[in-house]
Design a binder for these strands. Structure first.
Lengths: 106, 106
DNA sequence: TGCTTATTTGGTTATATTGCCAAATAGACA
DNA sequence: TGTCTATTTGGCAATATAACCAAATAAGCA
């Protein structure tokens, strides 16, 4: 694998890695529905605000979400909706696994 | 976030996490084109065979790839082709970021 | 059986991630 | 200005990941 190819896969992996966490997936899913501030997300997720803030900064740093300051609050929203398509395929993988399990039981 | 919701996002994250590594992305990309044994992949990637073997086991454990033993070799192939769709969106994110950069320069 | 090749697994070390608390920063408003 | 709220950042401890080498396993063949 040459330098350029390697750089390409590293760049891709960085974006996918940002999505590879349950809390961040939940956040992305929710931000697709509505702009939300950190404090609300923190309550929904059930984690410290500092923790949620870091999750948001990870998603923002790779360009998946955007922030918007409104007074003392920061509202985040989904910038690239196509990431939602990921879920469809992920469900397909899960379904395929479940079916394989069923085969064994039957 | 209740127990069931949490479990759902954890299951999804596990699958995405398996893809969140440059070497594994390269492997998935290549296995989409042709069945390949560990030894060849190891050379292509430029990493120890044991390292590649572990990457493959991670992808296999979440059901993205499948293995097939042929004599002393083990050939792997892509089981769920829709993961390739991920790349399209990932490129879109990268493009969106690049355009934002261009805006700043212009 | 004994040898060779392909692969996996155990062990170890280095690095990265995660989550919380506490402290710093930023904006709104009295 | 001082205070309050929302958010981010520094520091730390616990855990997870990644890579390599070496050893174990599995399959084919002399």
């Amino acid at each position: 694998m040459n330098r350029k190819t390697k750089a390409k896969y590293e760049a891709r992996a960085a974006i996918i890695k940002a999505l590879a966490h349950p809390t961040r997936l939940f956040i992305v899913d929710h931000l697709a529905k509505e702009k939300t501030c950190v404090c609300i997300l923190s309550k929904m997720v059930g984690a410290d605000m500092s923790t949620v803030s870091r999750h948001l900064s990870i998603l923002k740093s790779v360009g998946i979400i955007e922030d918007e300051k409104v007074g003392p609050q920061v509202f985040y929203h989904l910038k690239v909706p196509c990431v939602l398509n990921f879920f469809g395929c992920v469900e397909a993988v899960m379904k395929s696994n479940a079916e394989a399990q069923m085969e064994l039981v039957r």
